[in-house]
Structures are given as C-alpha cells and as structure tokens.
Write a protein that binds this DNA or RNA. Sequence first.
DNA 1: TCTGATGATGGTAACGTTACCAAATGAGGA
DNA 2: TCCTCATTTGGTAACGTTACCATCATCAGA
Lengths: 343, 343
Amino acid sequence: MKSPGRSIERPAGRASVKDVAARAGVSPMTVSRAINTPDAVSPELRERVQKAVQALSYIPNRAAAGLQSNRNRIVGFLMPDLSVPHYHQMHVGLTKALEPLGYSVLVMETRYSPERERILAQVMLGWNPSGVVRVATGANDDLRDFFRKSRVPCCEFVDFKDAGCELGVGYSHEEAGFSVGEHMFRSGRKRLAVVMPRAVPRLDMQYQGVRRAARKFPGCHVQRILLKVPSPLSMSHGEEVIRELIENGLPTDALVFLNDTPAIGALFECRRRQIDVPERLAIVGFGDHEISSHIVPSLTTVRLDGVQLGRACADLLLRKVDDAGLKRTIVKIECAFIPRESA
Amino acid sequence: MKSPGRSIERPAGRASVKDVAARAGVSPMTVSRAINTPDAVSPELRERVQKAVQALSYIPNRAAAGLQSNRNRIVGFLMPDLSVPHYHQMHVGLTKALEPLGYSVLVMETRYSPERERILAQVMLGWNPSGVVRVATGANDDLRDFFRKSRVPCCEFVDFKDAGCELGVGYSHEEAGFSVGEHMFRSGRKRLAVVMPRAVPRLDMQYQGVRRAARKFPGCHVQRILLKVPSPLSMSHGEEVIRELIENGLPTDALVFLNDTPAIGALFECRRRQIDVPERLAIVGFGDHEISSHIVPSLTTVRLDGVQLGRACADLLLRKVDDAGLKRTIVKIECAFIPRESA
DNA sequence: TCTGATGATGGTAACGTTACCAAATGAGGA
DNA sequence: TCCTCATTTGGTAACGTTACCATCATCAGA
C-alpha cells in the first residue's frame, strides 16, 4: 500500500488536475487542454471540465506548470525604489502589458544598493523568470554579464545611446538636457547650475546636453553641483542646495534638478527664504510628479511616460521570449518639456 | 535510448542539482542538504558541493522546491496602489521581515477595483503562496471567505476592532480621529469638517472619533464632506473641496482630511486663494508623507509606521504558517499625532 | 565480540503540471 | 470495402526538487 487515497491524505489540500479529471470523467491531460487550449477540446467535454473546475474551485498551480513547460510566467522587475513615481509607473506599464497574457510581475527593490541588487538578481533567477526588467542602481555593471550568462532575457532602462546593452528602453538624456538648457537661456538666464547625484553616469549625459545649449548662447555659463549623497533623492537635498547657494551669495539665476523631488524641496526653501521664483531664481525639475503641477509656483519639468516605458520593456521581453534570435534593440522613448511657472 | 544526454539536450539550460551532484561526486540529495541544512552534512562534502555550486553557478529552482515541499516561499501582497506612501512602506516592512527568511514578496495592485482584486486573488493563489497580506479595496468582502476557504493564511490591514477578521494588523481609527478632533477643538476651532471618500467603512470610525471629541467641547460642530470619487485620492480632490467651501462662504474653520495627499492639495489651493492657514482655516492630514514636513506651512498630520505595520503582518503570517492552530489575532499599531504649522 | 545508538549518505518516489507520442474515432474518397 | 487523414483523447514520462526511509559506517557500552 504505497500511495493511500489522496483525499484522505490531504483533506485540506487544494484540488489538482487529477481531482478535476476524476470528477469530469476525463483524463488529466484533457483537463489541461480544456483550460489552456480550449479549442483543442470538444465543446461537450470542455463544458464538463469547466463545471468540475467550478465545483472544486480548482486553481492551477502555476509553479508546477512552469516547471514542466520550462516557461514560468514570471517577469522580474529589479529597480531601486518603488516609491519613485517614475519607477512605479513603469511597474504599472509592465503589469498592464503582461497581466493579460497571464504573466505575474515580481518586483524587487534594490534600495540603491549594488550589493542588494546582486543578491536580489540571484533570488530572481531562482524563480526562473521568463525575463527581467532592470533599472540599474549604480555604475559598474557586472550584473549585465550575470544576466547574459544566465540566458534570461534582460531589458534595461538606459540612455538611448547605451552601447553595451542587449535589450533596452530609454530616452536621450542629452536631448532632454539640451531642451531644458535651451529654454532657460532663451528666456534670459545666464548663470545656470545643474544639480545631480554623483555616480550615475546616465545623468552626465543630461548635463552635457545643457552645456551644448549653453554654447549656443554667448555669455551663458553652466556649473555643476554634485550632491554628496548618492541616490535616494529627497526634498531635503533640494533645500540644502538652496541654503548653500544663499551662503555663497546666490551666484546663480537658474537651477536645474534632474529629479522633481529635490526641486520641490528647493521651491519650499525659496519660499521660506523669500527668494522669488522664477524672478530671482528659475527652478526646473525632471519627472513631472503629481505634485509638480499643483505646487505654487508650479514646477517646470520634463515629463517621461513611465507607463509607456514599462509597456515597451514588456513588449521587448516578449519578443525576445518568442524569438531568441532577436538582435540588440534599444527602443527610444520621447520626453516632453513642460514649461510652467517656476522657470 | 529514452533519455539522451542532458548536456546535449539543453546546452543553454541552467545547471540542476543533478549536475552539481555529478560534479561533486555525491548524490543529489546530499547537494540539497548541503545547501538547505549545511549542518547535516560533513564539512568535507559541504565544501565539495559549494565548489561545484560555484563552478556551475547553480541557482536552485524555487518553483520546483516549492512544488515538492508544498511550501512555496512566496508571500502575496494584495493592495490598491503601491504609489501610496503608506502601502509602499508596508511593502518595505514585509520585505525586510521576509527576505532574510528566503521568502519573496509578490505584490499586486488592485487599483481600487474590487473586480480586479478578485481576479488577482485567483492569480495569487495560483502561485500557491505561504500567505497573503491584503489591504481591502472596497466594502463588501466575499474575498475574506475566498481566502479562508483556500486555506492560505491571509493577514489584513484593518481597524483594530474589526470583528470578522482572522489575522489582522491595524490601528484604532476611532482613537486616531479622536486625537485629531481633540487637538482642533482644544485650540479653539468650532466648526470642523471631515473630508472622506465614501464607501470605505474603516474611515467612518475615524469620523466617529472626531465626533466623540466634539462632544467634549460645547458649541463645537462636526460636519462630513463626502467626496464623490471613491478612492484614488489626489491633490485635485483637496483643491476641489477648498473651492466648494469658498463658494459656500467658507462656513468652516478646520478641515480634517483622512489622507495627506488631498490635504496638500488643499494647502496649495488656500495659498492660491489667499486663505491664511492656519489662521483662517486649520488643515490636518493623515499619513505623514515626505512632503508634509517640507511644505509651507508644514502639515499637521498623523503618522502611522507603515514599515512596522508590514513587519507585523509578516510576523503574524509566519506564526500562522508554523502553527496552523493559531487563533484569531489582531495586532494593534499605535499612531502618533504630529502637530505642525497648519493646525 | 556483540548490541544498539548515532550520524552521514543515498535511492526512490512524489509534488502538479504539460510535452510528446500513441491510440481511437469518424469522415471522406477510391 | 478499404485506406487515408484529421480530429479528439489518453498514457507515459519528465520538469527540479525534497520527503521519507533504507543503508552503511562508526563508536560507545556491556
């Protein structure tokens, strides 16, 4: 007596294909087909199976299905911090594209730690995902190789010009910087400062774009303010920048942040210190957060459609899953300069 | 010749226990032990296995492990919207508690849609999770039964007094409302309005708390403003409230929002309409978002430690997993009133 | 020397599903 | 009538892992 009756063994257990098959009087295989490829099964049996599924409230075990078919319907999303509106939007985009196809998105937050990212990448692969979407945390990228070796398709959020990336979606940081710079100088600003965290190479290109704009306007200068802190950008960082600028006699008439959050902080600090924005100081952000259009004065910024971006990542991954031979592809996403009151 | 050489069959495939076992010259079982219960294996073999694991960059397949052991190391998190700071914090808390134990958190956003929640609950169970943490989207709760029947432990974010809930973590909405109300009336406010979305029963209790406070202060009134929109609360909703209030001659000297987001919107609208806060109108929020301490005037609010809350949910689930006999438990989380400039 | 206990290791089967092929059925044409 | 082909169904095995039990060596105690 090797295998005692299942219904006695696991009274609490969930129903399996076998249970459904028994109840519908068909083979497990037919149940599987009735669920996954209903057209391959006669209408009569299909209905019998559906009834049994209902009756037993059968829910297929996706882990088992993925194991057998070697196609786990999971897509990983590895990024720094879900509370960043832009990344959250990407998640929404991913989900919207993948959910209808039966995929689940498994998010993991690196919290801007490269070590954590490495660990999480391992854990991620443990789930044998169909693909991974990644927003790189820091600079040096052994993880790119890690994914390449693992044979799991990996789509990154990158600069449009990124060379070393197999599958990617991104905007042109240089162009984005240029359009911001051009607007500032055209509206008469002379001494502009770009505020950015150190050690995110992508952002350098945005700075370069601003500089290119400056070259078109004689007598205009661009300076760079590097934040000591690396990445989780907060409002305090923006406030801090304003304070330091004031201590130095405010040698600047325009401030370009590469993120709305510190720009908002700067706006508040200006209000507290009674620095008129935009008259005395123009402020620009990046990302168009919800608050940016509500704040007084409203924040001039650049909008990037995160949902579209997430969708694009999903599409790319799916294409790669269908066709492993797919060549290097970087999809370009446009971003839009949004002039408002602050600049 | 039924099973041709694996290394020829799947040259691209990842290494499995068998591959590791072959390379280390041990049985697959020993590999499994060396990884999961290292103490049960002799130091010498343990090292041999570790070397082989390294050499083949072996990553155990968690889906397969979960299938066999019937304990998938997944905890689901079913909630309305990750971009809500409070829910995001819960996610961080969950992750911090569960990751070190080898669990992965699978988040799904209902986007405040009960239908979506029902579908996602199904999908979630398809992954056979060890447990689920749920923030209920709407009112009527067949889903509670759904999870009960499924035998998957489910921990909800609820009011501390919630009766029908098996496993839950929550604060006392009534007390929170009371402490806000008390502060307002004590500081001389007379005509207070509570702004809330309809159809979230939990929040009614918060309103009741404010009313209890009013009863302690003669001559004080509490009114309720129900937002037409159900739940994704935005800054515009707060602005709208201010506009309508002004049209009605501003018959109110204190406004209690049950969420910081619309409160922030209200603050901005007051600035635009030149209504002095807090002199003419006091404004209180709920949640203590990042911005609330930075905005001018800074927002009086109630802080709820979402990270702690997430941790508590995780702990509860783990206890239930270890001991299926665990009785009904609701864990109480304290929240803190934070007086600032706006009230 | 033998017994029994202890600890390390391996063999077998099973988790729930689907891929793959075989078998059965029925329709249509020669 | 027989053969072919398409359609529908079922049987078997396998995905990668671990639970469970059997085995074997080692060692202490009698």
